[in-house]
Simulated scan of single mutants.
Amino acid sequence: MTSEALDLVSRPDRQANRALGEIVREADEPMAVDIDPDRSRETSSTNFSRMRTDWRTGESSEIEGILQESRGIIHRAFPGIYMIMNELWMHVREPVVVDGTGEIVTDIFGWPEWKKLPSGAYAEDYSRLTDREKDDFLLRITTGLLEWHQQAADLWGTSMLAKGRWEEAMGIGFLTPTGRVTVEERTQRGRVHASEDRYHAIFRATVSRSAEALVRSMELIGQRLKDSLTA
């Protein structure tokens, strides 16, 4: 916390400090929508025909842009993983090519796009991998895990720092108002003051979770390659 926030917290306001603690603890709780149970009593039945199942106009492209930014960070942080996987896929899949030229179609990151079955699953045949190729991929994955785990830990660290900024902003927003202001009003002002930091923390948490899942997937692939060699 900054010196400004520490000075504010030192004020003899036990109720405000207790409420601030509750706000800060929100960062450790699952990010779920909290629905007041009393609202369920306002209607005898739920009108599912009015339930919104998609993003509002403009939101979908905005969310996709944010997720694309997250994917970009992951690709830049783990180029070795994507290099290995695309080399492996080149053995077991068929790339999409441009009719007439035979040029391989690539995605926005420069990796090949792969042919899919009518079901949407990729067309692939892992029996094409020889034992020598499996052993080579296994060795590269095993030796790469040390670096990948450290990179994932760094991204986790940045997500924790973003979370700390969020908590700090919430505390400052909560304690700044003066005069006769209720705890509920302070709480709302704290949330508004920290809204930008909150979304940044969510974004960094998303990146960290993606990195963790990617490295865990490589561990599983390495184990499966090992099992196929000893079977």
Rank of each mutant, 00 (worst) to 15 (best):
L8E: 03
Y126P: 01
I202T: 07
P118G: 03
D7P: 00
L214N: 05
T206V: 04
L161Y: 04
G171F: 00
H75E: 09
E212L: 05
M218T: 07
S40R: 12
V98M: 11
R165Q: 09
L229M: 15
W166A: 00
R165E: 12
A205V: 00
S159C: 07
S228E: 15
G222M: 03
E124N: 10
A5P: 00
K163C: 09
G58F: 04
E26F: 06
E69L: 08
R189G: 04
I35S: 06
R180P: 00
A77Y: 01
G173E: 02
T178V: 13
L139S: 10
Q151L: 15
R189V: 00
A19G: 06
I73Q: 06
R204L: 15
G171Y: 00
D197P: 00
S60A: 15
A153D: 14
V98C: 05
L145I: 15
W89C: 07
L129V: 04
R191D: 03
T158H: 10
G120C: 08
D227P: 01
V92D: 02
S60W: 02
L146N: 08
R224Q: 12
A19F: 09
A77C: 01
T182V: 02
T176I: 08
G120Q: 08
D34A: 12
A152C: 06
G110Y: 05
S119H: 05
V98S: 07
E87L: 10
K226H: 15
L161T: 09
W114F: 12
A123M: 11
R224L: 08
R14Q: 09
Q188A: 14
S40H: 10
I63F: 10
R76G: 01
M90Y: 05
P30M: 05
A213T: 09
D36W: 06
M170I: 00
P118V: 08
G222Q: 02
V33Q: 10
M170Y: 02
R224E: 13
P118D: 12
T2F: 04
V207H: 00
E26L: 15
S49D: 13
I63R: 15
L6E: 14
E62K: 13
S44N: 10
K116D: 04
L67V: 13
I84W: 01
S45I: 12
A162W: 03
